[in-house]
Design a binder for these strands. Structure first.
Length: 233
DNA sequence: GGCCAGGACACCA
DNA sequence: TGGTGTCATGGC
């Protein structure tokens, strides 16, 4: 646990600070309408394809899967690995991600007979532990699935969250994923819609900073993150 | 031509 | 347990 965190524990002002940041981001960017997908399985596929990839490239890969009619667990299971890799080529790391999509589809078939409704009825903590055992699903991807596919009140932490909130002193960049997640989940109500919007707003804000786009004046106090380094987890 | 993007895994000390 | 290499295309 970092020195920064010790100062935050039981900090009566933390909730207020997180709430102020949320409202300022929302005032700047408005609704983000995440996750941009038509159904839960598409969210899960997108969560894997977006790993270290730009969303525009993920959209192309998802469109290819849709056009081919394999954007469903059974379709991916039955698709040859090399053919699947070709369909998701634009999202990068296509061989690795094809294997991950296979593992995901196999898991859904074996465990829930492809019923995502059944999957989402599981206890949140048990489901999270289960997802983490699937090849290709790490903490951020698991939490994205829990929040955006299942509608469970889980806060998603990503690289932008770590950068921005460590720079403004609300966590340390050396904190673990769970430690940073706890900052939000212990100080904010378990509101699915707010968690949905908050993470999306952080990503949007992080992108604007990295692309050096003009920021709304309200958000200038948050314009403290730099772009990250490639290739490290 | 270099940097970065809505990470995760395998391997090694 | 923590650090490092690898996976890889596409936009700016």
């Amino acid at each position: 646990m970092s020195d920064v965190r010790r100062l935050q524990d039981n900090d009566p002002e933390m909730t207020g600070r997180l709430d102020v940041i949320y409202r300022e981001l929302f005032n700047c960017y408005g609704h983000q309408h995440w996750w941009p997908a038509e159904e839960p399985f598409e969210v899960m596929v997108g969560a894997i394809l977006t790993q270290s990839a730009a969303w525009v490239n993920v959209e192309k890969a998802v469109a290819s899967l849709k056009k081919t009619g394999v954007l469903k667990p059974q379709g991916i299971r039955e698709m040859p690995l090399d053919g699947l890799a070709l369909l998701i080529y634009s999202s990068g790391y296509y061989n690795a991600k094809a294997s991950k999509l296979k593992a995901l589809s196999q898991y859904l078939g074996d465990t829930y007979r492809d019923s995502l409704a059944e999957m989402c009825r599981r206890d949140t903590r048990e489901l999270r532990d289960e997802l983490l055992k699937v090849h290709g699903i790490g903490e951020e991807t698991a939490d994205s699935i829990l929040l955006y596919a299942c509608g469970k009140p889980v806060f998603v932490v990503d690289a932008y969250t770590r950068r921005i909130f460590s720079r403004i002193g609300l966590c340390s960049d050396r904190d673990s994923y769970r430690e940073i997640q706890a900052v939000f989940m212990q100080h904010l109500p378990p509101d699915v819609q707010m968690f949905n919007e908050y993470h999306a707003l952080i990503v949007q804000h992080g992108k604007d900073i990295c692309r050096k786009r003009p920021l709304c004046p309200r958000c200038c106090l948050l314009a403290l993150c730099g772009c990250g380094q490639q290739g490290r987890g």
